[in-house]
Design a protein around this nucleic acid. Structure first.
Lengths: 92, 92
DNA sequence: TTGACATATGAAAGTTCAATCATATAAAAT
DNA sequence: ATTTTATATGATTGAACTTTCATATGTCAA
């Protein structure tokens, strides 16, 4: 039962369009918050809130460099999950 | 953009504990609505509503036999996605 | 040390979604 | 035909989630 809860949680973090757009961008590399805002036309607050959720679920890593904070996908796992889902969607 | 929307939708259908419990049960075979209710201790209405969502997203198939309606996982795709997510959770 | 820029975060507002209730439809049994 | 059993579904309520607004925190430059 706890296993199913965890699985639902895994799917949930990827189930929001804003978060998925951020993840999609991060497949291209590391970006700071501003970059993400500009590229995706999102408010800074929205992005920071979603990045916090992604961080809490170990989807992204955080690195501060001066005033900027850079985010990147945590590991290949994340990339794999995203790519797999994307390719599954293509097939339909 | 439409691709990302579709991907989010795919993740969303798997992101609810009740739906995931139903999917988990259906990995064992075909069950009618009542069976699902009994096995998972859920109300008939709850189960029917969730089965409708799963049907709309092509996760399950429906087969009527007399008064009963039997549901099963639509294809191996669904099984693959679920198994993959589960095994990913195990690793953490 | 003050001002400017970047990010984070609490609270309120807005939105989506699941469970429940009531009821409709469908099939079989009497 | 009517009752019983199984399933589906519209409407409502309540909870969970996302966005926005306002503001706080952190870093650098002047």
């Amino acid at each position: 039962m706890a296993r199913i809860d965890e699985t639902a949680k895994l799917f949930k973090i990827y189930s929001d369009v804003t978060r998925l757009r951020i993840i999609d961008l991060l497949t291209q590399g590391e970006f700071c918050v501003q970059d993400i805002c500009r590229r995706l036309s999102l408010q800074q607050s929205t992005v920071s809130h979603q990045l916090k959720l992604l961080r809490d679920e170990n989807v992204v890593t955080r690195r501060r460099d001066g005033k900027n904070v850079y985010y990147a996908l945590k590991d290949e796992h994340v990339r794999t999950i995203y790519e797999m889902a994307r390719s599954h969607v293509e097939e339909c």
